[in-house]
């Protein structure tokens, strides 16, 4: 499972050609908000040319298309036919939009960008859709729609963050937190990412490559966790038991399963 989703503007070749070295688990090549109207054609051409030549399994490649009711969306879909990408990020997600993308690009998974109040009214239906892989909270646009002032502590989005996590988990989908937009505070980023992790998010989106290492720090198992998980799994396997005491604490099946998940993640992220 990806811990980080990095947005890269579709019209910046210098960044696109470096996408694999930023260390993100997933890249979202953006054709929407970070590309001005005059650059849309160029961005589509650039992204298409690059992805026809370069294929990636790691990082996973997603494309953020333009909203389904825009003319640009039609051009985006036409460009993306037969391109080897992992999925689509749909802005201003709605059930209608998800169904349209599912029909237009039958090979792609979809991440629903939850950034309108209306989307939250049908969040369960969106998450339940079989082609939807995850929910991504878009707090900046949502805050604007709700007339909320965004703050460093992000208390104002606690409810929608929790709603995204609960709904995504209810349908076994990925819960992805909104990007942290302050580019100067690494401490703030770490705090924000750790808070998202505590709330149950699986991953965090980012708008700057230099945020990736910190996001991974928050969303990866710690060395101590890995060490303890190894001991739990080793004890369970050696003694053929699913219930025992370790360091004075009870260990049972859910804890053993959790320890195995930590070891899987450690292996996947090369932390073992």
């Amino acid at each position: 499972m990806s811990r980080s989703f990095l947005f890269i503007p579709g019209d910046v070749p210098r960044m696109i050609q470096q996408l694999e070295i930023f260390g993100a688990d997933a890249i979202i090549l953006d054709l929407e908000d970070s590309v001005s109207m005059t650059q849309k054609d160029e961005a589509r051409h650039l992204v298409e040319s690059f992805l026809r030549k370069h294929h990636y399994q790691n990082p996973l490649i997603y494309i953020r298309v333009n909203p389904i009711d825009s003319e640009e969306y039609t051009y985006d879909i036409s460009t993306l036919q037969n391109l080897r990408i992992h999925g689509i990020v749909l802005p201003k997600a709605s059930l209608k939009g998800i169904e349209k993308v599912a029909k237009d690009l039958p090979q792609c998974k979809i991440i629903a960008l939850m950034e309108t109040p209306e989307a939250f009214l049908e969040i369960a239906a969106i998450a339940k859709h079989k082609r939807v892989e995850g929910l991504l909270l878009g707090a900046e646009d949502l805050a604007q729609a709700l007339n909320l002032e965004r703050t460093e502590k992000s208390d104002e989005i606690l409810y929608v963050r929790s709603q995204v996590v609960l709904t995504a988990k209810a349908f076994k989908k990925i819960a992805i937190d909104t990007p942290y937009t302050n580019l100067t505070s690494n401490e703030g980023l770490l705090e924000d990412a750790q808070k998202a992790r505590q709330l149950g998010f699986d991953a965090k989106a980012s708008i700057h490559p230099n945020h990736i290492d910190t996001i991974h720090q928050a969303f990866s198992p710690t060395k101590e966790n890995i060490k303890r998980a190894k001991r739990i799994v080793a004890y369970a396997e050696t003694h053929h038991t699913m219930r025992f005491s370790l360091d004075g604490k009870m260990v049972d099946k859910p804890i053993i399963e959790h320890a195995k998940a930590i070891l899987d993640a450690a292996k996947r992220y090369r932390l073992d």
């Binding site: 470096q18 070295i21 930023f22 260390g23 490559p209 230099n210 290492d213």
Partner: peptide
């Protein structure tokens, strides 16, 4: 350096 490429090289 704050350049992401430079940072990756340094890391």
């Amino acid at each position: 350096t704050k350049d992401p490429v430079g940072l990756r090289i340094a890391a």
